[in-house]
Structure formats: structure tokens, C-alpha cells
């Protein structure tokens, strides 16, 4: 079993990546830190497999918490209003208004993805994971990683960039 101090040190060096991951999933900075906090608390209080790489395990814990709580919250939110028009990005700065607006659209578009596509896209695009690493982290076949990633990219490209209809 890892010493607590060793574990804390590992967690500390993983925080930047964890926050990016959580923010990508929740699209809200406040929710991201709440999610990472819950993840850290769980990592410190529950057993971690000896052979588990901490960062990969942390992502898995974070993802499970997000699935359990935030997705449920999103379902409730979506019942009230279209997420496309929700103020999901809360960090607009006046002199960066244009960029913030564009990124706001990206965040809003991400919230429209099904959770299983959303998480795969984030692991590849934000964390730079290989398909194999995503497959191991989410415990899904590589073929599933490929298809979910493709659907996520097409959906966001449709919404944000240009029509990306299948070529036949």
C-alpha cells in the first residue's frame, strides 16, 4: 500500500492533468474543482490497487464520479433548458471576449455529447492518450474507443466548424 505522503505527492503532481480532465467533462471551473476535490478525497480514503498507475486510476475515479453525479445533474438541467444556450462557461474576460465566446461555444457543444463520447474525446484530445490507454482507462474495447471518438468528432465538427457528413 502506498504511504499517504507518497500518495499525496503523486496526487499533487497529477492535479493539473486532473483539473483539465474534470473541467473538460463539466465545462465549469467551479464544478471541475468540486469534482477533483471529490476525486482526491476518494483517492486518499479508498484502497488503490498496488499495480495501478496513479494518474490512470485517478482519471477512472474522476470519470466514475462525473458519470454518477454530473451526468445526472445534466439530465435534470437539460429537462429545463437546451444546454446550447446555458451559460456553461463562467470565465469571460472583456479583452479576450472573442476568444472566450468561441471557447464558450466549444464548451456548450461538448455538453451536448453523450457522456460515453464526451469522455473518450477528452482523453484523446486533452490528455493525449493513445487508443490503447483510453481502452485501459475506461475498460472498453479499442474498437469502441475508435467509434465513439469518431462520433464525437463528427458531432462537434458539425456544430462548430463545417459540415462533416459521411463520405460515400
Amino acid at each position: 500500500m502506498r504511504k499517504k505522503s507518497v500518495l499525496q505527492a503523486e496526487i499533487a503532481s497529477s492535479l493539473p492533468a486532473l483539473r483539465r480532465f474534470a473541467f473538460s467533462l463539466t465545462t465549469s471551473m467551479a464544478d471541475a474543482d468540486d469534482l477533483v476535490q471529490q476525486t482526491v478525497e476518494r483517492l486518499l480514503t479508498r484502497p488503490i490497487p498496488e499495480d495501478a498507475a496513479l494518474l490512470q486510476w485517478a482519471f477512472r475515479v474522476c470519470r466514475n464520479l462525473w458519470i454518477d453525479e454530473y451526468r445526472a445533474q445534466r439530465v435534470r438541467d437539460n429537462a429545463l433548458t437546451d444546454p446550447q444556450f446555458q451559460d456553461t462557461v463562467q470565465f469571460h474576460v472583456e479583452d479576450q471576449a472573442e476568444q472566450a465566446l468561441e471557447l464558450s461555444a466549444v464548451g456548450a457543444a461538448m455538453t451536448t455529447l453523450p457522456a460515453e463520447q464526451h469522455e473518450v474525446l477528452v482523453l484523446v484530445a486533452v490528455q493525449g492518450m493513445s487508443y490503447r490507454e483510453v481502452s485501459e482507462t475506461l475498460e472498453i474495447p479499442i474498437g469502441t474507443v475508435m467509434s465513439r471518438l469518431a462520433r464525437a468528432r463528427v458531432a462537434l465538427a458539425d456544430r462548430l466548424n463545417q459540415p462533416a457528413e459521411a463520405m460515400h
Partner: peptide, 13 residues
């Protein structure tokens, strides 16, 4: 471009 956009979004934090 989607990957770049999603990554840029994430880096805001």
C-alpha cells in the same frame, strides 16, 4: 480542428 478546440477549452483552467 475539434481536438484543438476541445484542448484549448480545457487549458483555460
Amino acid at each position: 480542428q475539434v481536438d484543438a478546440q476541445v484542448s484549448a477549452f480545457a487549458q483555460q483552467i
